[in-house]
């Protein structure tokens, strides 16, 4: 599904290397988690994959089902099936949540040569998905993320994911700023999307989220590289001992 090879990335504006050779393959149907201390490059990886400006890839590659991601515009990556749930979802005053989602959904369908979804079909679909995530009609009508609480913003990200049905989902610290109940709601939303064909990359600081979203593999990232890979137990080890001893171990 997602294949990252020897990825080197630096900031465009200053000569600072952030990713120093990341290798990672996420197979269809699997959930991979990336953990790591602050500044290890986790979020940069998610930005580079989704096509945010400001980063320069100096070496390596990233492909989605064989297609070169790094050569595509952000909207093309989305249409190809990549989705990033933002750590800080953006507020867009003046654009209704519903309008936003319908525009996005139909733009992707159009890019893939599919028919646009009509208003009635769309309404039926979004109402059903919103209900599962405990998102009320008012939240759908309001401008995108404006005045939403932290939990509401994250639920709105998962709603978008559920509506757009991407092949590869990247969740960037989706657990940050969530209380236990909200985290459970978000995790349930993600678990509902798990199937044999969809890949997940879950970026998190804490093991807590991984209690609810069981990963197949856990990677530890430090200083721009993946330094260790293991099963779900690796997350528990981090929780108990912190990153320090892992860093020493590989040093």
């Amino acid at each position: 599904m997602l294949e990252i090879k020897n990825l080197h990335v630096s900031l465009e504006t200053e000569d600072k290397q952030i990713l120093k050779g990341v290798d990672l393959t996420v197979e269809a149907g699997k959930v991979h988690a990336i953990m790591g201390p602050n500044g290890s490059g986790k979020s940069t990886l998610s930005y580079v994959l989704s096509g945010r400006d400001g980063y320069a890839v100096t070496e390596g590659s990233a492909t989605l089902e064989g297609a070169d991601l790094l050569d595509m515009e952000p909207e093309e990556r989305a249409a190809a099936g990549l989705f990033l749930a933002f750590q800080y979802p953006v507020e867009i005053p003046g654009v209704g949540n519903m309008t936003f989602l319908r525009t996005a959904l139909n733009a992707q369908r159009k890019a893939r040569g599919q028919d646009e979804m009509n208003a009635t079909e769309f309404l039926k679909l979004i109402r059903a998905k919103a209900k599962e995530l405990n998102i009320d009609a008012d939240m759908l009508k309001r401008p995108v993320n404006v005045g939403f609480s932290g939990g509401e913003k994250k639920r709105n990200e998962i709603l978008q994911m559920a509506m757009l049905e991407p092949k590869m989902c990247i969740l960037d610290e989706t657990d940050s700023g969530l209380d236990v109940d909200a985290m459970k709601l978000v995790a349930d939303g993600v678990n509902a999307l798990r199937d044999g064909g969809r890949g997940f990359l879950v970026i998190t600081h804490y093991q807590r989220l991984l209690d609810h979203i069981k990963p197949d593999l856990v990677h530890i990232m430090a200083d721009g590289r993946i330094i260790k890979t293991g099963g779900a137990d690796l997350a528990l080890e981090v929780e108990q001992h912190g990153y320090a001893h892992l860093l020493e171990e590989v040093a």
Binding site: G51, P74, V95, T103, A107
Partner: peptide, 23 residues
């Protein structure tokens, strides 16, 4: 930021600019 958010959801840049302009 808003432009990138819209594009990351699949809205092509010119359409995203128009959406933000209308907003």
């Amino acid at each position: 930021e808003a432009l990138f958010y819209l594009r990351s959801r699949g809205v092509p840049e010119p359409q995203a600019v128009n959406l933000l302009t209308l907003a």
